[in-house]
């Protein structure tokens, strides 16, 4: 008993010390803020400085069509952005992983990466310089005589979509490229050899192989897009209407922390639900996709 205790204690202590940073991080920076937010979200304002526990902030979300619609719009736009990102990123990744060799491969990946060396804000302003009415694209079109007057490209849903897809691209390209690289060429050749055409090789061999990367890329892009704030606000202008903006507004311009927290909790839970549904539909397990 004694010896057993002796030999075990240092090990346990060591393990505990090793886990300490992780546990502290989890508790202090992940769990605690969420619990605090949950707590705040459950407080109703009765009168100035007087709050009681209740669900009115949540009821408000479901009864005020404005909030509900904003969320729905955000989620739908995010899903569209995710799908678009996937559609655009797949050929790029395939090209990098399978067509290119050596230096060109690295170069192209770095090219995909470069925009991410500057902050999201700078990237978005870059787009604004290009797309605004007095911007580069509009001036160019006038210069070559395509249009008479200046054209405003900013402040539309399409512009938001452009910005979202652009800023998500890397998070789709990287996992896809590395997964496609791991697909041995002989599988693709075998597909053709056995009589398959491009389409059947793509759907029956390449896609099943890349599925975990597709799903994990989609989850990351969806979450990033849903939680994006700058891009929809700056590129969407007067009609942006993004759910994170609602949260920001509740916290900062309405000082309504209770409502803002409720929105935050709802965003977290509903987006988790969407991801869960996505995993179920694609028959992937979370642990497999994220490994």
């Amino acid at each position: 008993m004694m010896t057993k205790g002796k030999s075990k204690t240092p090990l346990k202590l060591g393990l505990l010390l090793l886990l300490c940073p992780l546990l502290l991080w989890l508790v202090l920076l992940v769990i605690l803020p969420q619990l605090t937010m949950l707590n705040i979200s459950l407080q109703e304002r009765i009168a100035p400085r007087i709050y009681e526990y209740g669900f009115s902030n949540y009821i408000e979300f479901f009864t005020e069509p404005l909030y509900w619609n904003t969320f729905l719009r955000t989620a739908v736009m995010s899903i569209i952005a995710t799908v678009l990102t996937l559609i655009i990123a797949f050929p790029i990744s395939y090209y990098i992983a399978k067509m290119l060799r050596g230096r060109a491969k690295g170069l192209l990946l770095v090219l995909c990466l470069i925009p991410f060396w500057v902050s999201e804000l700078v990237r978005t302003y870059g787009w604004m310089i290009l797309l605004r009415e007095s911007g580069v694209v509009s001036s160019f079109l006038q210069y070559i005589g395509m249009t008479e007057g200046p054209i405003e490209f900013l402040y539309t849903d399409a512009t938001i979509m452009l910005g979202l897809v652009y800023s998500s691209m890397l998070f789709m390209v990287v996992p896809l490229t590395s997964t496609l690289e791991s697909l041995d060429d002989s599988y693709i050749e075998a597909g053709y050899d056995l009589g398959g055409n491009g389409l059947s090789v793509f759907w029956q061999i390449i896609v099943p192989h890349a599925k975990p990367a597709i799903v994990s890329g989609c989850i990351v892009v969806f979450m990033l897009t849903l939680g994006n704030y700058l891009t929809p606000i700056l590129l969407g202008g007067k009609s942006s209407l993004w759910f994170t903006e609602q949260i920001f507004t509740q916290f900062i311009t309405r000082f309504n922390w209770q409502q803002g927290s409720a929105f935050g909790v709802l965003l977290l839970s509903i987006s988790s639900l969407i991801v869960w549904l996505g995993l179920k539909l694609s028959r992937q397990s979370f642990s497999k996709v994220m490994s």
Binding site: D184, S186, Y187, E189, A190, G191, Q204, I205, P208, H209
Partner: peptide
């Protein structure tokens, strides 16, 4: 194929 390339 050398490594058979059976579709996993």
């Amino acid at each position: 194929f050398q490594h058979l390339a059976l579709f996993p």
